[in-house]
Simulated assay, not measured.
Amino acid sequence: MSRNKDITTRDLNKALRQISRDARRKNKALGLETMYERDGYLVRLDASGKEHRVKKLERKRRTSPPKVIEFD
């Protein structure tokens, strides 16, 4: 984190990656399966470490930006 105690998107993304990595490691140690998204696919990670593609995810459709309506 930067010295002025501001939280940046880089800090948040790094924290999310670390949390995800820790969760996968703990699930593997406990013999549980883990589901996550990678490259547009839903992936299931077995306790043995094998990855299985479960489903191709749909891309989010972009919506138009919200319109500003002025009231008099």
Rank of each mutant, 00 (worst) to 15 (best):
K5S: 11
R61H: 12
M35K: 10
H52I: 12
D11T: 08
M1Q: 09
K67R: 15
A23W: 02
L32Q: 09
L30A: 15
D6H: 12
D72P: 10
F71W: 11
K5M: 10
N27K: 06
K67V: 14
E58Y: 03
V68A: 07
N13L: 09
G49N: 08
S2K: 15
L57N: 09
I69W: 03
E33G: 03
G49L: 11
L57A: 09
K50L: 13
R3Q: 02
A15P: 00
R3P: 00
R44C: 04
D39W: 08
E37C: 12
D46F: 02
I69V: 13
D22S: 11
L16R: 13
V68P: 00
N27F: 02
K14N: 10
R3I: 02
V54N: 01
P65Y: 03
R24T: 07
R44H: 05
D39S: 07
R24Y: 09
R44E: 06
M35D: 14
S64I: 02
N13E: 10
I7P: 01
R59A: 09
R53E: 03
S64T: 08
A23S: 03
A15I: 15
D39M: 03
D72F: 04
L16T: 00
T63E: 12
K28E: 08
K60A: 14
S20V: 00
N4P: 00
R38F: 08
L16F: 11
K28V: 06
I69K: 05
D46Y: 12
K50C: 08
R53H: 11
T63G: 13
R3V: 02
S2M: 05
I19L: 13
R3T: 04
V68M: 08
L57P: 02
